[in-house]
C-alpha cells in the first residue's frame, strides 16, 4: 500500500506532550521499561537459541558429515540418507501441492470475485485447515495414506501428508501474489481478445512470478520444519531409501530421535539442527526479500 502522506505522528514523536502531564511520568517510565524489557527478552532468547545451535553444531558439520551414511543409530557417521529422504518427501509434497495450490489460488483470485458460494466455502475450510495441529495431520495421514490407501510407512505417505499441511499457506501466498498484479493487465489482455487461459499463462503468471516463488519457498520452509506429521507417515528408518515406497527419516525426525532415544547422539543432533536451521533461514530470508522487492516494485509501476 502506498503511504499517502507522511503521518504527522510517528513512534518517535508520540507522547511529545508528556511534560505537560507530569502525573503520568512514573507510569510512563514503568511502561517504557516493560516495553524495552520485552524486546530485550525476545532478542536474548533468539541469541541464546541460535548461539547454542551454531556454537555446538559447528564442530559436527563437515563435508564428511553431509555425505556419509549414519552409523550406530546416528551417533557416528553423517546424514546423507537423511538428506535424501528429506528431499524425497519434499519432492512428493511439492509435486502434489503446487498444482493443487496454484489451481485453487487462481480460482479464488480470478474466478470467485464477490461473494461466490464456492469461494467462501473453500476459504473457510482453508482457514480451519491452517489451524489443524500437525500431530492431527499425522493421525490423518497414518489412517488415510498409510492404512486406507495401503502406502504403509513411506516417503510417499509422508509427502502426501505434508502436501495437505502446506496447502493453506501456499494458497494464501499465491493468491496474494496474483491479487498484487494490477487490474489493467487483465483489462488489456481482454481488450486484445486473449482467452482467459492465455491471459493467465502469458500475462498473469509471469507478472506474479516473484510472489509465487516466495509463496512456494514459504511452503517449502513449513514442510522442511515439520516433524510431528511425519513420525507416523514417513517413519524413521535411517537407511538409504530405494523408492518412494520405502520409509525415510526426515532431518527434523533425526534430531528428535538423536536427542530423545539415542544416548550419546547429542553431538550429531546439534550438527543436524544447525543444517536444518541454516536451510530454513536461507529459505525464509530469500522468501521475505522476494516479497518485499515484489510489492514495492508493483507500487512503482502502478
Amino acid at each position: 500500500m502506498p503511504e499517502p502522506t507522511r503521518p504527522l505522528v510517528s513512534g518517535a514523536t508520540l507522547g511529545a506532550g508528556r511534560h505537560g502531564a507530569s502525573q503520568n511520568n512514573l507510569a510512563d517510565t514503568v511502561f517504557g521499561v516493560l516495553v524495552w524489557g520485552s524486546a530485550l527478552a525476545v532478542t536474548a532468547g533468539f541469541l541464546w537459541l541460535v548461539g547454542e545451535i551454531v556454537v555446538s553444531g559447528f564442530g559436527a558439520i563437515s563435508w564428511e558429515f553431509l555425505t556419509s551414511e549414519p552409523a550406530s543409530s546416528g551417533r557416528a557417521g553423517g546424514i546423507s540418507t537423511i538428506l535424501v529422504a528429506t528431499l524425497g518427501i519434499l519432492g512428493i509434497c511439492l509435486a502434489v501441492s503446487i498444482p493443487l495450490g496454484l489451481g485453487t489460488a487462481l480460482f479464488l483470485s480470478e474466478f470467485s470475485q464477490g461473494e461466490n458460494r464456492m469461494g467462501r466455502f473453500v476459504r473457510a475450510s482453508l482457514d480451519v485447515l491452517a489451524g489443524v495441529p500437525s500431530i492431527v495431520f499425522g493421525l490423518f495421514g497414518n489412517a488415510f495414506f498409510c492404512v486406507a490407501l495401503g502406502f504403509g510407512f513411506s516417503i510417499l505417505s509422508g509427502g502426501l501428508t505434508l502436501a495437505c499441511m502446506v496447502l493453506p499457506i501456499l494458497i494464501r501466498s499465491i493468491e496474494l501474489g496474483l491479487r498484487a498484479v494490477p487490474n489493467d493487465y487483465r483489462v488489456a489482455a481482454a481488450a486484445l481478445d486473449l482467452s482467459k487461459s492465455r491471459m493467465i499463462v502469458r500475462v498473469l503468471l509471469p507478472a506474479a512470478a516473484p510472489g509465487l516463488i516466495a509463496g512456494l519457498l514459504l511452503g517449502i520452509g513449513r514442510a522442511t520444519a515439520e516433524t510431528a506429521a511425519l513420525i507416523f507417515t514417513s517413519g524413521y528408518v535411517d537407511r538409504m531409501p530405494e523408492s518412494v515406497f520405502d520409509s525415510g527419516r526426515a532431518l527434523s525426525i533425526h534430531i528428535y530421535d538423536l536427542a530423545m532415544n539415542v544416548p550419546g547422539g547429542e553431538a550429531n543432533a546439534y550438527g543436524t539442527a544447525l543444517v536444518l536451521v541454516g536451510l530454513l533461514l536461507v529459505i525464509n530470508f530469500v522468501a521475505t526479500h522476494l516479497v518485499e522487492r515484489f510489492v514495492s516494485g508493483r507500487i512503482q509501476s502502478a
Binding site: P99, L100, G101, L102, G103, T104, L106, F107, L108, F111, M118, G119, F121, V122, S125, L126, V128, L129, V132, V136, F137, L139, F140, A143, F144, A148, C164, L167, I171, K196, S197, I200
Partner: peptide
C-alpha cells in the same frame, strides 16, 4: 471451459480436505 473446470476441481479438492480429515478422525 476446461481451465475453469480444472480450477474448480482443484479448489473442491483443497476445500474438502478438512472434511476428509474430520471423516477419518
Amino acid at each position: 471451459r476446461i481451465l475453469v473446470w480444472s480450477l474448480r476441481a482443484a479448489s473442491a479438492t483443497a476445500g474438502s480436505l478438512v472434511l476428509l480429515i474430520l471423516c477419518f478422525l
